[in-house]
Simulated assay, not measured.
Amino acid sequence: MTEHDMAAAPVVGGNVLADFDAILAAAAPELAGRVQAVALDAETGRLDVVPDLPAAGTQLRWSAPKLIAAANEKVPGANVRALRVLAPAPVKAVPATAAVEPAPPSTAPAAPMRRADPPEGYREGIGAHRATWT
């Protein structure tokens, strides 16, 4: 990075985003899997996070000081100073590198099902209705 005159701030921000699950587990384990870090502004030190539900967002705001301290402790040079909780959105699924469980076997019948014949009262009602048509 130094050889190419690139700033280290984006790397630190990437580390915070990459290690966010471990940071969250250390600060607020009850929110694990319910919150996702989406951006870190290296200039202002603001970490943007998205909860899956409004209740998780409220709990996240209460845990903000602990989360900021954990981020600065786990990622040296992160310099996270503020937390911005964005509007709730579905949290992305487990990364593709994680083990995926096989899909359960299908319970669909092998042959297509045959519809049962309608009851006689239904047939009489349809016949009477059709008789009124001109």
Rank of each mutant, 00 (worst) to 15 (best):
G14V: 04
V50D: 03
V49E: 03
V35K: 06
L47N: 07
T58Y: 15
A22Q: 15
A18N: 12
G45E: 04
D19H: 11
L31W: 07
L47V: 01
T44F: 01
L17H: 01
A56M: 06
A32R: 15
G45K: 00
A18Y: 02
P54F: 07
L31M: 05
P51G: 10
S63R: 13
D41K: 07
L47T: 05
G33F: 05
R46T: 15
A27S: 12
G13K: 03
D21K: 10
A56T: 04
R34A: 13
S63E: 12
L24T: 05
D41I: 00
D48Q: 11
A37S: 07
R34L: 10
G14H: 07
L17K: 09
P54I: 04
A25K: 14
A42R: 01
D41P: 11
L31H: 05
V16D: 11
A56G: 04
P54E: 05
D21V: 07
A27I: 07
G13R: 01
D48F: 12
A27E: 02
A37D: 00
V49P: 10
E43K: 09
A32L: 12
E30G: 14
D41R: 00
A25F: 14
R46Y: 08
R34C: 03
P51F: 03
A55V: 15
L17T: 04
R61G: 13
D48H: 10
D52Q: 09
A28Q: 10
A28F: 07
L24Y: 08
I23R: 10
D48S: 15
P54C: 08
T44D: 10
L24R: 06
L24M: 12
V49G: 11
A26Q: 14
A37Y: 00
A18L: 06
R61D: 06
G57E: 01
L60Y: 07
V16K: 08
A22N: 11
V38G: 09
A39K: 05
D21A: 13
D19I: 00
V50S: 03
P54Y: 05
Q59A: 15
A32I: 06
R46I: 14
V35E: 03
A37E: 02
V35A: 08
Q36G: 13
G45Q: 03
Q36K: 09
P54R: 10
W62K: 14
G45T: 03
L47R: 02
A37F: 00
E43D: 13
R46F: 02
A55C: 08
V38C: 04
L53M: 13
Q36F: 03
A26T: 10
I23E: 05
V50Y: 01
A26L: 11
L53K: 15
E43L: 06
G45F: 01
A18H: 06
N15M: 13
G13V: 00
